[in-house]
């Protein structure tokens, strides 16, 4: 087993507000190995984006309190000096954001953006940086890269703009790419293009990817390993096949049951999760946070169940005995029976 590229240890992110403390990330620990694609799944407010922004210390809210350790190649990013961190941002760890419409500064060309990143980390001439920008734009599938390098963001379509952002992220050959909902703002057919591009680039460049998404389908097409977050905690983590075939946590069942089946059958009703997601300002945290919406909740859901590895590489935080999971899962997904 090689040393992990990224190791997050007991990361906790909270915000002080007038009405009290809001806990966005509640003690999560995980690792990302070199060359691996990890999917981080959750709904809005689950803490999936905040936790990854914290990795690069990109939250500049003075009321934000961060605890824990984020080790990248053995060095703690949270305690590192600003200068050291800057040399990692963009060069070792790159990031792609959800909305390609707003991720590029509107007054600069595509080439300018890419050159800026290259020249921030390497001593190369403007000309050389521009040539690399053209190469990169070609490699992410932008036609006529020689002329498009001088186009402004508003002259690209949404999908093309996301390609520019990806080219920029890859410009310094990062070893870790954090992609925060990279396709959510795009049309389905464009999403398919971008996902394929990411897959191709990943096998070509070999970077690890942490893919943040709310879409189980996207994760299942991209990730080697899947982590499910709820209320700022990891509730399930395992290999893609384990989690997709035999999801273990009731929340994951609910997520799966909420998606219309794609196998061609039509369900009568969806096995939706009742109620609303837990609010990050909920202070009653010494329990399973999913219990209020869980059909199987009992008194034993308090105190907070830990993330336990029930079988190699597949862990979850639920008190239901692992032997009963298959049975319960069938019950949970029962309303999803096909139409006659």
């Amino acid at each position: 087993m090689s040393e992990p590229l990224l190791e997050v240890r007991n990361l906790r992110v909270s915000f002080r507000t007038r009405t009290g403390t809001v806990t966005a990330v509640d003690g999560i620990s995980f690792t990302v190995d070199p060359g691996e694609v990890v999917g981080l799944v959750g709904e809005s407010g689950s803490g999936k984006s905040v936790s990854m922004l914290t990795v690069l210390r990109l939250i500049d809210n003075p009321n934000c309190v961060i605890e824990g350790e984020v080790l990248f190649k053995g060095n703690d990013l949270l305690t590192m000096s600003d200068a050291d961190l800057r040399s990692i941002r963009g060069r070792e760890i790159a990031m792609i954001f959800q909305d390609p419409m707003t991720a590029l500064t509107p007054v600069y060309t595509a080439g300018w953006h890419i050159s800026e990143q290259i020249r921030a980390h390497e001593k190369v001439s403007k000309k050389a940086a521009n040539d690399r920008a053209i190469q990169l734009l070609t490699s992410v599938g932008i036609p006529n890269a020689e002329s498009r390098v001088n186009s402004y963001p508003h002259e690209f379509s949404g999908g093309m703009r996301q390609r520019v952002v990806i080219a920029m992220a890859l410009s310094c050959n990062p070893s870790l790419l954090i992609a925060d909902e990279p396709t959510t703002a795009l049309d389905v057919t464009i999403q398919a293009q971008i996902l394929e591009l990411l897959r191709d680039l990943q096998s070509e460049f070999g970077a690890s990817i942490v893919l943040i998404t709310h879409d189980m389908g996207v994760v299942s097409q991209m990730a080697n390993r899947v982590m499910v977050m709820y209320g700022g905690r990891l509730v399930e983590a395992g290999s893609r096949l384990d989690v997709m075939r035999e999801p273990a946590h009731p929340y994951t069942w609910g997520l799966m049951g909420s998606i219309p089946p794609t196998d061609g059958t039509r369900a009568v009703r969806l096995a939706a999760i009742p109620g609303a997601p837990i609010s990050p300002s909920d202070s009653d945290r010494d329990r399973c946070l999913f219990a209020p919406r869980c059909t199987f909740a009992t008194d034993s859901c308090r105190p907070q169940p830990g993330l336990i590895e029930h079988r190699p590489g597949h862990s979850d935080a639920c008190i239901i005995p692992f032997s009963e999971r298959a049975q319960r899962r069938t019950e949970a997904l029962a309303p999803m029976r096909a139409r006659t």
């Binding site: 690069l56 990109l58 500049d60 600003d82 800057r86 040399s87 990692i88 941002r89 963009g90 060069r91 790159a94 990031m95 954001f97 909305d99 707003t102 991720a103 590029l104 500064t105 509107p106 800026e116 990143q117 921030a120 980390h121 952002v165 920029m168």
Partner: peptide, 17 residues
């Protein structure tokens, strides 16, 4: 502007403040 996505993106690129 400092709260815009493109500023966060610029920081993520490793650009100095």
């Amino acid at each position: 502007a400092m709260n815009e996505d493109y500023v966060r993106m610029a920081r993520a690129k490793g650009i100095g403040e």
